[in-house]
Design a protein around this nucleic acid. Structure first.
Length: 426
DNA sequence: CGTCCACTGGAATCAAGGGTCT
DNA sequence: AGACCCTTGATTCCAGTGGACG
């Protein structure tokens, strides 16, 4: 993206086997790699004491077999929600090692989002006996639910069910699943179930029906974004165990913190930045990690994220994106902003060349909006008065990525193809 | 002030593919 | 196996609209 952050040339290394250069250059910059992984849960979570205490206070009764309130936790990504919960889990296990009084179940709804699979997932974490486990497919929702309920009731414990990324489950099937989970207690005679929902969608509660809302959110805890100062502390703590002393340039940690605080206050992002910067430095055989490495890491993260999105896009969206790129680079048109109509005619042309089905303009409008939401393009509705009302579309990706798309082999036939001259339009 | 363009975006509907139920 | 969802992507239809122009 920017030319000034070039990493120094790789140093020549005496070759013995093909691995020698890598092992030789893997100088001990990184002492402990695990610590920088975002799945790592540190012993202490800096700046989350208050939240931990709050949650601990709420769920403490479970250790005496009393049902704690349901909790709804909101906060943006990378504010330590999942980390805090894992921490809580660990502490809970310490207090009740044999799960005599309470049992902790964690489900990530981003991975398992269908209502049945959520129940299935919960059940199989709870049900220990192998022969009683619920088969992966084949059972109806009701049957799974009934089995789960009867099993839970046979246990005489408090079950704490943590639903991470709870909004993902909501999108699929409304709040039905939450209804079943929260009403479970009315059927249960011995055991109790309490739910901890985690979401990074602050508007999530508005989507729920009032009934569910009050049940699920008996207690609400909001995780605020980290400030740059707090991010610095977090990074510093990890860096202390991750790196040998003196390896990190003074400015690196404040710089990482500043970058990620600026666009989210996301600790995960900050850690990624640091880890990748370290990786790059290490691979390059450098002895110190500097701001330049961080800059490099930053652009690589960005590139990876966007190209990943584009790679997994459906074909039609790719063609639409290609049309926008072509329109922008076309000698005859040559403008950064274009209308839906212009995109559509280019699109139909490209479809013709590639032998793809041409979709309606209505659908293309939708695809354009989708691309807009992904942040790949900028589209705002604008009125040209007498000349109609349309979306004004602008590309919003770097040339590296444009390059990458253009090289995609599905667009091969376009390489030698010159678009027709546009006859109409201003 | 009304007209009228070139679309937007909601709603209903369909078709295909996948999983589920019996 | 065959009937029956449910989801997703697409189509059809259409009412609605910001603002330059006359």
């Amino acid at each position: 993206m920017n030319g000034e952050d070039k990493i120094p040339e790789k140093k020549e290394v005496h070759r013995e086997s093909i691995f020698t250069p890598f092992t030789a250059k893997r100088n001990n910059l990184i002492k402990n790699r695990n610590v920088l992984q975002n799945t790592f849960i540190p012993i202490q979570l800096p700046h989350r004491d208050r939240e931990i205490e709050q949650i601990a206070e709420i769920i403490a009764p479970s250790l005496q077999k009393f049902k704690p309130s349901n909790i709804l936790i909101t906060g943006r990504t990378g504010t330590g929600k999942t980390a805090v919960l894992s921490y809580i889990e660990r502490e809970l296990k310490k207090a009740d090692p044999d799960e005599e009084n309470c049992c902790y179940v964690y489900v990530n709804c981003e991975v398992v989002d269908a209502p049945t699979s959520i129940l299935y997932n919960i059940s199989n974490q709870i049900i220990k006996e192998h022969e009683k486990k619920i088969p992966f497919t084949g059972w109806s929702f009701d049957k799974v639910y009934e089995t789960l309920v009867s099993y839970i009731d046979g246990e005489d414990k408090v079950f704490i069910v943590v639903l991470d990324e709870i909004d993902m489950a909501f999108q699929k099937k409304g709040d039905e699943i939450f209804y079943f989970l929260t009403t479970m207690n009315e059927i249960l005679k011995k055991s109790q179930v309490s739910i901890i929902g985690i979401t990074n969608n602050t508007k999530f509660t508005e989507l729920l029906s009032t009934k569910i809302k009050s049940r699920l959110g008996e207690e609400k805890i909001i995780f605020t974004s980290y400030t740059p100062e707090q991010l610095k502390d977090i990074l510093r703590e990890r860096a202390d165990t991750a790196f040998n002393p003196g390896i990190l340039d003074e400015a690196v940690i404040p710089y990482c913190a500043a970058i990620s605080a600026q666009d989210s206050g996301d600790a995960r992002r900050a850690l990624d930045l640091l880890r990748i910067a370290a990786d790059i430095a290490e691979r390059n055989g450098d002895t110190k990690i500097t701001e330049a490495h961080v800059n490099y890491a930053r652009s690589r993260i960005e590139l990876d994220a966007v190209s990943e999105v584009i790679k997994t896009m459906p074909m039609q969206s790719k063609i639409v994106l290609m049309s926008i790129i072509r329109n922008r680079d076309n000698e005859d048109i040559k403008k950064n902003r274009m209308t839906t109509g212009e995109v559509y005619s280019m699109y139909s042309e490209i479809c013709g060349v590639l032998g793809h089905q041409v979709l309606t303009q209505r659908r293309i409008t939708n695809i354009i909006s989708e691309l807009d939401m992904l942040g790949i393009i900028h589209a705002i509705v604008k009125s040209y008065g007498r000349n109609g009302r349309t979306k004004e579309i602008e590309l919003n990706i770097t040339n590296d990525i444009v390059e990458m798309i253009s090289r995609d082999e599905v667009f091969k036939p376009l390489l030698n193809y010159k678009p027709k001259k546009q006859t109409t339009l201003m």
